[in-house]
Deep mutational scan, measured.
Amino acid sequence: MSIQHFRVALIPFFAAFCLPVFAHPETLVKVKDAEDQLGARVGYIELDLNSGKILESFRPEERFPMMSTFKVLLCGAVLSRVDAGQEQLGRRIHYSQNDLVEYSPVTEKHLTDGMTVRELCSAAITMSDNTAANLLLTTIGGPKELTAFLHNMGDHVTRLDRWEPELNEAIPNDERDTTMPAAMATTLRKLLTGELLTLASRQQLIDWMEADKVAGPLLRSALPAGWFIADKSGAGERGSRGIIAALGPDGKPSRIVVIYTTGSQATMDERNRQIAEIGASLIKHW
């Protein structure tokens, strides 16, 4: 067993022997301040990774656009098919120029040779490549099948209805392509620590998230040296922004954090800054 596999296998073990965790309302004060600064709703939840206990939450059962955070769930569904012998990570998928959609920095470079399922998941999570996500959605049967996968996990809230990039439209009061912070946090925890996926697939999923290259201005910008984070960000229309993450000190994750916002007129930089400040408060009061 590799060191990384050992780390993920012992996530519940280490967490069980940690000192009790206590909620700190100071972080919620910052979440509410972010709402004021952005002029928009902000949803927040913080779960203990081992027990699933909610440590703090704000608007945990209000719907927010998922945006690209759905790509972690998508690759979880792909990995479940791999575990069941219905898919192979090494299978190569070929596609054409007509398949390319807006923001496809990886797939646009491989029109000639195609990409493997493993490479597509890596591109979808680490670079948020939209064509990679659409190609992977095709392998599982489309958005409705991802929703069905989530329902089978016990998540009857999260739903995907459309493809990239239309799913980022974020129309107010439109339930399409949305989740709730509580539902997303619980589902992410199941994917990373539950028995739904094999140990190898859980490790692969967290490795992809740990290698995320496009979430630097968010929670990662607030992390002290030595902290662990595996995350996936999302951005959408109407001032929408979000991030889902597993993080913790001492090089291992111990909490799940989900943050979503929508309806702001603020710039992307300002949305990023507010999420980073929430992260800084979380870490300060850990």
Rank of each mutant, 00 (worst) to 15 (best):
I243M: 03
G141P: 04
E210C: 04
R176I: 03
H285D: 01
E61A: 09
L146N: 15
M153D: 10
S51R: 04
P217C: 10
I171A: 02
T112A: 13
Y44H: 02
T107M: 01
C121P: 09
L120V: 06
T262K: 12
P172C: 14
K213M: 12
M67E: 11
W227P: 01
M153R: 09
Q86G: 08
H151Y: 10
E166D: 13
T178L: 11
A183F: 08
G43S: 07
A34T: 13
D231Q: 11
Q203N: 01
A124C: 11
I93L: 05
P165R: 02
S57G: 13
T198Q: 08
E119F: 12
S80E: 09
L135W: 05
L199A: 13
G239N: 01
A246R: 06
M209Q: 05
I275H: 13
V78G: 11
I54V: 09
E237I: 11
A124K: 02
T131H: 08
V31Q: 12
T112C: 14
E195C: 00
D48R: 09
R241S: 08
D269C: 06
T198Y: 13
L150S: 12
E108I: 00
I243T: 09
S281C: 08
R81G: 06
E26Q: 08
E175Y: 09
D231E: 12
E277D: 12
P60Q: 07
N134A: 07
N98S: 00
R271H: 07
Q37F: 14
Q274L: 12
G194T: 12
S240R: 03
R91V: 02
V72E: 00
L74T: 12
H24M: 15
L223R: 09
G279M: 07
T261N: 11
N173E: 10
L100I: 08
K109E: 14
P105Q: 15
M184T: 12
I243A: 06
K53Y: 06
E62I: 00
G85P: 15
G236M: 03
T126L: 08
P253L: 08
P181Y: 01
V258T: 10
Q88W: 12
R81P: 13
M268F: 02
C121G: 01
G43R: 01
V117Q: 01
M209L: 05
S80R: 10
Q97Y: 06
K71W: 01
P217I: 14
S240T: 09
L47M: 11
G43N: 00
P65D: 08
F70G: 02
V157K: 05
L47I: 07
P105A: 08
M66N: 07
P25N: 05
G142P: 08
L79K: 15
L79V: 08
T107V: 01
P65E: 10
M115I: 15
R159T: 00
A183I: 10
L136I: 13
T126N: 02
A225Y: 15
A245H: 04
D129G: 00
S128C: 01
P181S: 04
N50Y: 04
A148H: 13
T179L: 10
R241E: 07
L49P: 02
P65A: 06
K213S: 03
S128T: 06
P60F: 07
L137W: 15
H24I: 02
Q204S: 02
L47Q: 13
D231I: 05
K252F: 02
R59V: 06
H151D: 14
L89H: 05
A40L: 05
R273I: 05
S264D: 03
G226F: 03
S96T: 15
A222I: 07
G194C: 11
T186L: 11
T267S: 11
Q88I: 08
Y260S: 05
G141E: 02
A34K: 14
L188Y: 15
A40P: 06
T198V: 12
A222E: 10
T179F: 01
E35K: 02
L160T: 01
A77P: 01
R271K: 06
I171T: 06
I229V: 02
E102Q: 03
